Simulated assay, not measured.
Amino acid sequence: MDRLIYTAMTGAKHVMEQQSTTANNLANATTTGFRAQLDTFRAVPVIGPGLATRAFVVDATAGADYSQGALQQTGRALDVAIQGKGWLALETPDGSEAYTRHGSLKVNENGILQSQSGLNVVGDSGPITIPPDVSITIAKDGTVSSVEAGFKPGQSTIIGRIKLVNPPEDTMTRGDDTLFRVKTPDGVEADANVTLIGGALEGSNVNVVDAMVNMISLSRQFEMHMSLLKNAETNASKASQLLAF
């Protein structure tokens, strides 16, 4: 059987996988703080007897697009957007740290500052607890302060400081929960150079036009691989006819 079948099959398979990635990016074009996933193709020669005239196709995940998305003003006190590079640190259920750019925060029924998904925001000394009946402000360095509600503006009370980090991008991996983690088990130290913008959220950095063009291109590549499979079938049929005589 012609090895072309296996070559075209692997190409079609990975085109479909990359099409799935592109579709996922498009589905998250309006997700706050989303980072577009990037995939690349690479050819791997088939090792065996004879000349290396065949190659398999492999879809290699190149990582994520870390460019900043558009900022949207919300005016909400618990909405923050990271200016430039950096991440918010969250505590996962297993006690480890994960990082996100989704700055829409909330206070749960126990007064703990959390993400919208219910994960505790990491502070300098653990979770940040918000007292009841207070107005919250978050400074650009992540400092969380409170002023008692119903009183004239006066001196604010510092509650804690959100942990802001900026690990090297090549050490970060995306999890199935859309949160990013570093490869080192000890986590990342806080970075004082990371700053926040209060009352704003960062949108997704997915370029819808580029994603649509990429989807069309992948569809044409898939059709090309299907044509190769049909050619292999035709060649096999003609060869069988010639051998039958």
Rank of each mutant, 00 (worst) to 15 (best):
residue 95 G to Q: 06
residue 78 L to G: 03
residue 53 T to Y: 15
residue 112 I to N: 15
residue 74 T to G: 04
residue 42 R to L: 10
residue 111 G to Q: 03
residue 117 S to L: 04
residue 103 G to Q: 11
residue 81 A to I: 01
residue 93 P to C: 06
residue 89 A to G: 04
residue 111 G to D: 09
residue 96 S to R: 10
residue 56 F to K: 03
residue 113 L to Q: 02
residue 87 W to K: 01
residue 97 E to S: 05
residue 98 A to I: 01
residue 109 E to T: 03
residue 86 G to C: 14
residue 47 I to D: 13
residue 65 D to R: 06
residue 101 R to M: 08
residue 36 A to S: 12
residue 66 Y to G: 05
residue 41 F to N: 00
residue 37 Q to C: 02
residue 44 V to P: 01
residue 111 G to N: 00
residue 105 L to F: 13
residue 89 A to P: 12
residue 94 D to S: 06
residue 97 E to Q: 14
residue 109 E to K: 15
residue 100 T to F: 11
residue 59 D to N: 07
residue 43 A to V: 02
residue 79 D to V: 00
residue 85 K to A: 14
residue 96 S to I: 02
residue 99 Y to C: 11
residue 48 G to L: 10
residue 82 I to H: 07
residue 95 G to M: 10
residue 98 A to F: 09
residue 35 R to I: 02
residue 107 V to P: 08
residue 108 N to M: 09
residue 103 G to S: 07
residue 81 A to Y: 04
residue 79 D to G: 01
residue 116 Q to A: 10
residue 54 R to P: 02
residue 39 D to H: 04
residue 46 V to I: 08
residue 45 P to W: 13
residue 111 G to Y: 05
residue 55 A to Y: 08
residue 96 S to F: 15
residue 100 T to L: 14
residue 117 S to H: 10
residue 68 Q to D: 15
residue 74 T to E: 08
residue 106 K to H: 12
residue 49 P to E: 14
residue 99 Y to S: 10
residue 109 E to D: 15
residue 89 A to Y: 13
residue 113 L to P: 01
residue 69 G to S: 05
residue 66 Y to M: 10
residue 38 L to H: 06
residue 42 R to N: 11
residue 117 S to F: 07
residue 77 A to R: 14
residue 79 D to Q: 02
residue 97 E to W: 14
residue 61 T to W: 08
residue 87 W to V: 03
residue 40 T to W: 01
residue 57 V to M: 11
residue 108 N to I: 03
residue 111 G to P: 00
residue 65 D to A: 12
residue 84 G to H: 08
residue 66 Y to K: 03
residue 110 N to H: 12
residue 51 L to H: 05
residue 50 G to H: 09
residue 34 F to K: 00
residue 86 G to A: 07
residue 112 I to M: 15
residue 105 L to H: 03
residue 79 D to K: 00
residue 38 L to Y: 00
residue 47 I to Y: 13
residue 95 G to H: 09
residue 96 S to Q: 13
residue 36 A to D: 06
residue 80 V to P: 00
residue 93 P to Y: 03
residue 82 I to D: 06
residue 49 P to I: 05
residue 59 D to H: 09
residue 46 V to N: 11
residue 42 R to V: 04
residue 74 T to V: 04
residue 78 L to Q: 00
residue 110 N to G: 13
residue 58 V to M: 15
residue 116 Q to L: 10
residue 82 I to M: 13
residue 95 G to F: 14
residue 92 T to R: 15
residue 34 F to R: 00
residue 56 F to Q: 07
residue 64 A to H: 11
residue 98 A to K: 02
residue 53 T to V: 07
residue 81 A to N: 01
residue 82 I to V: 13
residue 93 P to F: 15
residue 88 L to V: 04
residue 61 T to I: 05
residue 74 T to R: 00
residue 93 P to G: 03
